[in-house]
Design a binder for these strands. Structure first.
Lengths: 262, 262
DNA sequence: AGATATTTGTTCGTATGTATT
DNA sequence: TAATACATACGAACAAATATC
């Protein structure tokens, strides 16, 4: 009774394997359409009613499958007439959210992050030489202006640290190598969200700000000169000193915690 | 930050906004529990029945929310007595699948991939010096044995190319820096799955095999000597020559396609 | 080993919210 | 404004998986 009555004389039959998981079958089926038919973002997918018919599944099951695809950023849905499910391109921010979950239980250290930033950010900076428009430079300088002065309070202090990271994110978004750009942005995001980093950013650290400001101003200069080698070496130094500061703060904070730990 | 000021007082009032999106509310709620209560992999979550009651939502809605969390690898579910939803740790393979979607419409080139491999793989190799057990070495040599001889046919040819990548994946899994290990594995995965690469791997290329074999044997030697610097430099050379071969093949294949393109 | 209880997975029918025309 | 087409939400019942006795 496993291989039940699926001989409806219908042409296409998903075969209804006993180890069922209808939802996953529907997911795989729709993903198959996307790759085989070379569907592109914005292309329509069949509506729920038709999916129910094609997969011989109930509304709830079809909806669970669509929800899974939506969660992965592969489709987007709209209500109303002309609505339905459409192919979508997973955007960078969503991709980083999904990837962040992988590191949620793996606790990368500041050393882990900077080991990568030290090699990736210089290469990213170098790849930008000769590719920035006047508008891009304006945006960078606008970002720098947020932390070109000492912070008046802790709140501003924190916002300045985030803005320093934003500076790098602006660069990463302009990187012609999409993988390199993504990885740089992702590391920046880790720094923004890691709890140890948040604690560091919450404590005043005037040297960190001045150091960043100095390197980033020089970096803009090198990029204006379209000097890739110099941009890379400035960025490398910047990452090295930033790592030193961060790890010093980390040690200090963890020392403090030892006293209060039970 | 969500405004999830759930007044956990006596009257449970999820606020029930008319603008539906109940599913997302439930997702956010459960994710909130995971982070606020510091839940760890394996910890139980309430069962469907109780979730329905807590969120005052129907079974289908709760299930869609659970499906979304499951898709992200944050929970796993089991049927039967004692079953239910459990917190899970997103595993590496699933994380790579999710991230792959980001690059599905962004078409990284072989140059993009190797620009990163050239800096990441050497660092990864260096981090392994003095950390490998006899068992690890055995596994590496076992992998190499798959391609230590010329392939008899196209099928074996392809499997050899995949095994060459597997060699690097074995190393990446042992990398003490989880981010570095993940990124190396991910780049290897991209090479495995990119259609241009599959075409390259499907064509005979004896030089590529011999070159890889040579470098990897020397790499094992350096790792046995626990010589990090030498391991890194061998890996760097390996990546450079591999890139040259791959890009030469890429150009050849694309030349061939130009003739058949309309 | 087999029956049973428990829990997720699936189905169907219906009602409601939302955007287009 | 009303009609329409679509996703979203609800609830009861059924099917399948699995731990326990």
């Amino acid at each position: 009774m496993r291989e039940s009555d699926q001989q409806e004389a219908a042409p296409e039959q998903p075969r209804r394997r006993p180890g069922y998981k209808r939802t996953d079958e529907i997911c795989d089926g729709i993903m198959g359409w996307i790759v085989e038919d070379r569907l592109k973002p914005g292309d329509r997918l069949p509506q729920e009613r038709e999916l129910m018919a094609r997969f011989k599944a109930s509304k709830s099951t079809v909806r669970e499958a669509l929800k899974a695809l939506q969660t992965q950023g592969l489709i987007a849905t709209r209500t109303g007439p002309g609505g339905g499910a459409f192919v979508a391109a997973l955007d960078g921010n969503r991709a980083m959210e999904l990837l962040s979950n992988y590191f949620y239980f793996r606790h990368p250290t500041i050393g882990d992050i900077y080991a990568l930033r030290k090699v990736l950010e210089p290469q990213m900076a170098a790849s930008l030489a000769g590719r920035l428009t006047q508008e891009n430079f304006s945006r960078l300088e606008e970002t720098i202006r947020i932390y070109d002065h000492p912070a008046a309070n802790i709140g501003e202090e924190y916002r300045q640290r985030i803005a320093e990271l934003d500076f790098h994110t602006v660069l990463a978004e302009l990187c012609p190598n999409p993988i390199l750009g993504f990885m740089c942005s992702f590391l920046q995001n880790l720094l923004r969200n890691l709890s140890i980093c948040r604690r560091i950013y919450d404590t005043p650290n005037p040297e960190l700000r001045e150091s960043a400001l100095h390197y980033q101003a020089r970096l803009i200069e090198a990029l204006r000169e379209e000097n890739a080698v110099r941009a890379a070496s400035i960025m490398f130094e910047h990452m090295c000193t930033a790592q030193d500061y961060m790890e010093a703060c980390e040690a200090e904070i963890q020392d403090g915690f030892l006293k209060f730990d039970e």
